[in-house]
Computed example of a mutant assay.
Amino acid sequence: MPELLAVCRVHALLPDAGTVGVTAIDKRPVDGRVKARRFGLYADVQADRENHGGPDQAVYAYSQEDAEAWGAELGYEVTPGLFGENLRTRGLAVSDAVIGERWRVGTALLEVTQPRTPCQTFARRLGSPPRWVRRFTQANRTGAYLRVVENGDLGAGDAVEVVHRPTHGVTAADWFGAWNRLDGAPDAADAAKALLVAHDDGDVRLSDELRERAGRALRR
């Protein structure tokens, strides 16, 4: 059974060269159980509210397997929270989760909404490795944002149970790859159509951002 290795919240707001001037990307593991609510984990924050946070990006999850792959490439351990994630999982292919997939973690019910889009704040957090945003994009190990469908509490050691998987089949990595026209990715228009049909049929509730991008993918 997949499990939750760590629950991470903001440790401190850090100065940042971006337009906001500070960043809350410094997430670190916390002990005990943490409440998950509509806007995220209790006592967690997002500094750039225009581009991060909100109900559709309430929680960010990243897998230990993807972190270890990056650790081998970067030459140091990618510890829980280093990528700004709230949840570090093991045994679950987070980047390959289907959009709309639901997980029971502790007493909370979470739903995959969209992949993470890397930014320069993320690069600066890691000390600006060469071409980091491009490298992260091309690797297509995005992790996934989640919304909180049912409030609850969760903690390290909890099982991560996939309780629902939509039939449209488009994963976070599929969509990210399609949108960014990565080699081997599905056609963006095909992925967009599958997602929009699923949304209209009530099989999934797309985030506003993903729905808008899917519409653009059909037109470009």
Results as ranks from 00 to 15, higher is better:
2 P>E: 09
3 E>M: 08
4 L>V: 12
5 L>D: 02
9 R>L: 08
11 H>G: 13
13 L>G: 02
16 D>N: 13
17 A>F: 06
22 V>A: 10
22 V>G: 02
26 D>P: 00
32 G>H: 12
35 K>Q: 11
45 V>R: 03
46 Q>E: 08
56 D>P: 06
57 Q>Y: 05
57 Q>H: 07
57 Q>N: 08
58 A>G: 04
61 A>M: 12
63 S>L: 05
63 S>K: 01
66 D>F: 13
67 A>R: 07
67 A>Y: 03
67 A>I: 12
68 E>F: 05
71 G>M: 03
71 G>F: 09
74 L>S: 01
78 V>D: 01
80 P>S: 05
81 G>I: 07
87 L>C: 05
89 T>G: 04
92 L>M: 04
94 V>E: 08
98 V>A: 03
101 E>K: 02
101 E>F: 03
101 E>L: 07
109 L>P: 00
111 E>I: 11
114 Q>R: 14
115 P>L: 09
117 T>Y: 07
120 Q>G: 03
121 T>F: 00
123 A>Y: 01
128 S>D: 15
130 P>C: 04
139 A>V: 11
140 N>K: 10
142 T>K: 05
147 R>Y: 09
150 E>T: 15
152 G>W: 13
153 D>R: 11
153 D>S: 13
155 G>N: 02
156 A>M: 10
156 A>V: 12
157 G>K: 07
158 D>V: 13
158 D>Y: 12
172 A>K: 00
173 A>H: 05
174 D>H: 15
187 D>E: 11
188 A>Y: 02
191 A>M: 12
192 A>I: 11
195 L>M: 12
195 L>Q: 07
196 L>A: 05
197 V>K: 05
199 H>A: 14
201 D>M: 03
202 G>N: 08
202 G>K: 11
206 L>R: 05
208 D>P: 04
211 R>F: 15
212 E>R: 13
212 E>N: 04
214 A>T: 10
217 A>W: 06
219 R>P: 01
220 R>S: 09
